[in-house]
Design a protein around this nucleic acid. Structure first.
Lengths: 143, 143
DNA sequence: CATAAAAAAGATAAAAAGGTCTTAAATAAT
DNA sequence: ATTATTTAAGACCTTTTTATCTTTTTTATG
């Protein structure tokens, strides 16, 4: 399961992208409201995303958050990897650090299947796709 | 992802079951070592499990932890439900409380697939099966 | 340039999770 | 009955996560 922080990040990115697709550039307070996260906290999170170039921002009047044009949309995988760390995707289901094919935990194979499905999904899902679904009224971000 | 506490619980239960199958009744210090968890902490966790009848215990000399005979082995689902709560299995991937078929989050269907696979797996996997794998030397619990 | 708008940064606080220590209660064995 | 052994219970501490508040920096515009 993702941490709250990562969930906020994903929701905020989808919200920003949805607005960007409509030609808007949302500012922090709107993003916080739209993604149901505390303003200052989401501020910090977006700051991290910008620092790592998953997102762009502009200060001052007319500023806000936006995605760079002509850059392929980031995937959920990109966001999760940044927020949770690469290890998140390889973690043993039972929390064992040694867990591997040679030294498997008792549910190694079963968890592998789940992880693989998960990885496949989050790699395919892009923020842009998800934002489009929101703009089309097919999906919602309200808590 | 499971909390550390739940991981400890699962590892401890498998350890206890593995010993039970060999006719032994492990005590706290051994369980803590065998499941790589802090003694006192695992003590609390097992206490919870006993209180909810997923496990049995005996105080005093010759005491320890064990599973009631002739009771079908509990599944990972049972343990996870107790430790994390029923909601764990229905939680939205993006942390949205309203998320449902009528009001889906942008990745609702994809996450549903993953959840269903997960649910199927943890329902099928019993502590006894997993413990057997350990006793057969096919799986390990070391961190 | 002065001003206002906005994100960035940093310091701090509150809450939750994880972990330790001490004492009490139960029980088997002598 | 006393003692030793063992889990149960409760109080307390530490770390991590989540959240807030304040100040600084950047920038567009009059």
């Amino acid at each position: 399961m993702l941490t709250k922080t990562t969930e906020y990040a994903i929701r905020a990115l989808i919200f920003i992208q949805a607005r960007n697709l409509k030609g808007e550039r949302p500012r922090l307070p709107e993003i916080a409201e739209g993604s149901n996260a505390p303003v200052h906290y989401i501020g910090k999170i977006l700051q991290t995303l910008v620092r790592h170039r998953l997102l762009a921002s502009a200060k001052g009047p007319g500023g806000g958050f936006f995605f760079a044009k002509n850059v392929p949309s980031i995937s959920l995988f990109d966001v999760i990897r940044l927020m949770e760390g690469e290890a998140f995707f390889h973690r043993c289901g039972f929390g064992l650090n040694n867990c591997s094919v040679e030294n498997p935990c008792p549910a190694h194979d079963q968890y592998r299947e789940i992880r693989e499905l998960y990885l496949e999904k989050v790699t395919r899902l892009t923020i842009a796709d998800l934002a489009e679904r929101v703009n089309e009224g097919k999906a919602y971000l309200d808590v």
